[in-house]
Amino acid sequence: MQEHAPIGADESRKAPKGTQARVVQELREAIISGVYQPEAALSEVALAEVYGTSRTPIREALKQLQVEGLVEIRPRVGTFVRRPSRREVVELFQIKEMLEGLGARLLARRGRVAELDLLDENLLQARRAVQEQDAEAYARLVHEFHDLIVRGADNTRLLDHYRQLMNQLAYHRLVVSTLSRPGRLGASLDEHRGVVEHIREKDGFGAELAMRDHVRASEREVLADPVTGGRQSREDD
């Protein structure tokens, strides 16, 4: 797993920097993947036991994840996995559409690069997952597909912003939930194929439009799901 910079806080000096970075990364992955569901309580004592460390790096990791929008620390109440508002989900998908559309356009301009071969292999595996109705396997391939598109754009700033956004969305958790809807597996695969076809033809404009359409379709599925569609907030009213 990719290493993230340790959190800079005075209390963190009591714990080895490598320990704190590991806790942040592993706890982030657990939230994003759905091990800890939205609104689940996160006990410092229990997490310290799970991750084999003291409470100090756990406390600092939770502070970092609060900054990232993944947890909510309520004074004198506790810490909980954060459920974004419906408005936040919409806004994050609007940014996702722009970033991934740009990624598809830039990748199409590059011609025959390694990422294109990896995308072809991804589509083959995805087809098998659809045939077997294996939503969990397909969800992993969805994450890989989108990451390959943005990586293939060969723009480090775009990739950094994109991965931060995906963390905030806890995207894997959203995909697993929405793929259970009838017909969504096959429709998603068809959308992926359309994007890759435009990229293969070096049609940057078409690739961007196809990717934007795909992201909007995914957004509609997420918002239609009462579990993933985000909580209502005053701003949504």
Score class of each variant (00 low, 15 high):
Gln2His: 15
Ala5Tyr: 11
Ile7Trp: 13
Ser12Val: 12
Ser12Ile: 11
Arg13Leu: 14
Arg13Ile: 14
Arg13Tyr: 15
Ala15Val: 11
Gly18Leu: 04
Val23Met: 09
Val35Pro: 01
Val35Ala: 05
Glu39Asp: 09
Ala40Lys: 00
Ala40Phe: 01
Ser43Ile: 03
Val45Arg: 11
Val45His: 07
Glu49Tyr: 11
Glu49Cys: 03
Val50Asn: 05
Gly52Gln: 12
Thr56Pro: 10
Ile58Pro: 06
Ile58Glu: 11
Ile58Tyr: 12
Glu60Asp: 13
Lys63Leu: 12
Gln66Pro: 04
Gln66His: 08
Val67Gln: 15
Gly69Glu: 10
Leu70Gln: 07
Pro75Thr: 10
Arg76Gln: 14
Arg76Lys: 15
Gly78Ile: 08
Gly78Ala: 08
Val81His: 04
Arg82Val: 05
Pro84Lys: 04
Ser85Met: 03
Arg87Val: 10
Glu88Trp: 08
Val89Asp: 03
Val90Pro: 00
Glu91Thr: 03
Ile95Met: 10
Met98Trp: 05
Leu99Lys: 01
Gly101Arg: 00
Gly101Ser: 01
Leu102Pro: 00
Ala104Lys: 02
Arg110Val: 08
Arg112Glu: 15
Val113His: 09
Val113Gly: 10
Ala114His: 14
Glu115Ile: 13
Glu115Lys: 10
Leu124Gly: 10
Gln125Gly: 14
Gln125Asp: 08
Arg127Asn: 05
Val130Pro: 03
Gln131Cys: 03
Gln133Gly: 07
Ala135Met: 02
Ala137Phe: 06
Tyr138Leu: 15
Ala139Trp: 06
Glu144Gly: 07
Glu144Arg: 15
Ile149Gln: 02
Val150Glu: 03
Arg151Tyr: 09
Gly152Leu: 08
Leu158Gln: 07
Asp160Gln: 15
Asp160Asn: 12
Arg163Ile: 11
Arg163Glu: 15
Gln168Thr: 13
Tyr171Asn: 11
His172Lys: 14
Thr178Arg: 08
Ser180Ala: 14
Ala187Val: 00
Ser188Gln: 04
Val195Leu: 04
Glu197Leu: 08
His198Ser: 09
Arg200His: 10
Lys202Ile: 03
Asp203His: 05
Gly206Ser: 07
Asp213Phe: 05
Val215Gln: 00
Val215Trp: 01
Ala217Val: 00
Ala217Tyr: 03
Ser218Asn: 03
Val222Glu: 02
Thr228Glu: 12
Arg234Val: 07
Glu235Asn: 07
Asp237Ile: 09
Asp237Pro: 01
